[in-house]
Design a protein around this nucleic acid. Structure first.
Lengths: 227, 227
DNA sequence: AAATTGAATTTTGCATTCATTATTAATTTA
DNA sequence: TAAATTAATAATGAATGCAAAATTCAATTT
């Protein structure tokens, strides 16, 4: 066996791939504001790239549902309406339930430990009222469950949807009461996963999601009536 | 009310959108062969477009999972492996079940008639052993159920997955016996939908899918061992 | 002054060009 | 002659150029 066999060719991502990720992040973080036009030229200058890879990235993000392309009028950040949320919610519910089922069957001990670790870290954030930290660890846990499910196609689909609602979820702050409840639900999630109970886990994940969405829906409605 | 208010602005699709559709069709129809490189230059010449919109379309189709982009080595038609099929199958199952549930709740009488009509047309094809026709009407029925579900996000996701497996499904010819069974399952689907029984419909759709996949899996395995 | 018209400007979609990287062919070396 | 090296050719990725469309803004009309 040659010693060079283990040297993997370095993966240099193409510009449009990097741009897709960058823009996606900018949308989720609200740097690119929902409803507003994507300033193509400015972004190109700011990021030091030409329009070609930028426009490729825009096309991909539009296919992902994060932007809408208006012929001859550029791209707009799509955001999410209450109606769209009502569509996306049952979809994510079905995917979460499936992820839960699969995770119970496939989660490894190492993965289980990672989940426990993130769970604890999330609890710490809760007790110190660190919302951004909580949000981050929360997201991580769901990512880990998805990973434990061991289904790439499922992960991809779920993530596409999750990104679409993430911004709204972040902006829709939980009430103290709702936060307490969410933490309780997460305790149940951990328990069901440790017990490898697919039925139970699928159910809790769906209920948990339902509650999260109730919060977002409430916020979206209040936003809509504000205009 | 102005008489011009009803005049909708004509939608002229951009080149890259048309190309995306064209290429998608070419992949499903096997004009672009799974595993082979996409002849970018030739396609551009053949279709009379420049590389810019073509490459935009390639990026989108790669994001959809229909192509893989190899850095500095062009795009390859992805096809589907047995492993990927095993991933996509439960996903589509969950989506079909959801579609069934929603369709029971939301299907209109007009939609119900359309479905019945396609069902009858499909039966005719079965009795005259017209496989391509059967395949077409079959696909149409599933499209109609999805439409009846009234969830755009669900339709989009399902279609993305369906396209990925469609080519393989087409190539994996059903046995006489399996075909008879598939028709029987479709009778049950129609019955459950007419009875607006979401539980029943979801279950049958999932079982129906399971059988379809068994056929494809069998074919993929025989293909794999042939090489 | 409000609405309408019409240039000037910007933006957009796509084609073209160019540098870099792969692939193939030709040549050399062992 | 087979492997290795080099040169020639083709492809890819990204920047630039250009015509068509949209937008802005000033001029004109009502």
């Amino acid at each position: 066996m040659n010693s060079l066999d283990s040297v993997r060719s370095i993966r240099r991502p193409s510009l449009h791939e990097e741009l897709t990720d960058t823009l996606r992040t900018m949308i989720v973080e609200g740097v690119l504001v929902a409803g507003e036009k994507v300033p193509e030229r400015k972004l190109c200058e700011k990021l030091g790239v030409s329009r070609t890879p930028m426009r490729e990235a825009l096309k991909v993000l539009a296919a992902d549902g994060l932007l809408t392309l208006q012929p001859n009028r550029g791209a707009k950040v799509r955001g999410i309406t209450v109606e769209e949320l009502e569509e996306v919610f049952p979809l994510m519910g079905a995917l979460e339930a499936l992820a839960g089922e699969l995770a119970c069957a496939n989660v490894s001990d190492a993965q289980m430990n990672q989940i426990r670790f993130s769970h604890e870290a999330m609890l710490d954030c809760y007790h110190s009222s660190d919302m951004p930290g909580y949000f981050r660890h929360n997201q991580r846990i769901h990512e880990l469950i998805l990973e434990a499910a061991g289904n790439q196609a499922l992960s991809d689909m779920y993530r596409t949807l999750a990104v679409r609602v993430r911004r709204a979820r972040y902006l829709a702050n939980m009430s103290k009461e709702r936060w307490r409840m969410a933490v309780a639900e997460h305790e149940q999630i951990l328990l069901a996963l440790e017990a490898r109970d697919p039925q139970e886990l699928g159910g809790i994940l769906k209920r948990h999601l339902e509650n999260k969405f109730a919060t977002v829906r409430h916020w979206l409605n209040s936003q809509q009536s504000r205009e």
